[in-house]
């Protein structure tokens, strides 16, 4: 399963609705601090990356496409 599909499934399971890859999560109002934590822990566990420093920017989590791009960058940077 590719990253985008996996993230869409994760979001659907947690929010009980479907999402588009370019849909703004923050415009939806679903993002609480606890949900943000769940999302990052999921990204780190599912894709073997560590999200830190400049990657903790809101823009990297705004859409599924943005998260996929960030994960690919982090995976490429991991030795």
């Amino acid at each position: 399963m590719n990253i985008s599909t996996g993230l869409l499934e994760f979001l659907a399971s947690r929010t009980k609705r479907t999402w588009e890859p370019d849909e703004d999560l923050f415009a939806s109002g679903v993002v609480s601090s606890l949900f943000a934590l769940e999302l990052v822990v999921h990204l780190e566990k599912a894709y073997g990356v560590e999200v830190e420093g400049e990657y903790l920017s809101l823009e990297n989590f705004r859409t599924v496409n943005a998260m996929e791009k960030m994960v690919l960058e982090l995976q490429a940077a991991t030795p």
């Binding site: 923050f26 993002v31 609480s32 601090s33 943000a36 934590l37 990052v40 999200v51 830190e52 903790l56 920017s57 809101l58 989590f61």
Partner: peptide
Amino acid sequence: ASPDRYRFELALHSRM
């Protein structure tokens, strides 16, 4: 300035 930045970005920085 940004409730989203508070609820998301700051929360993640606090985690780290």
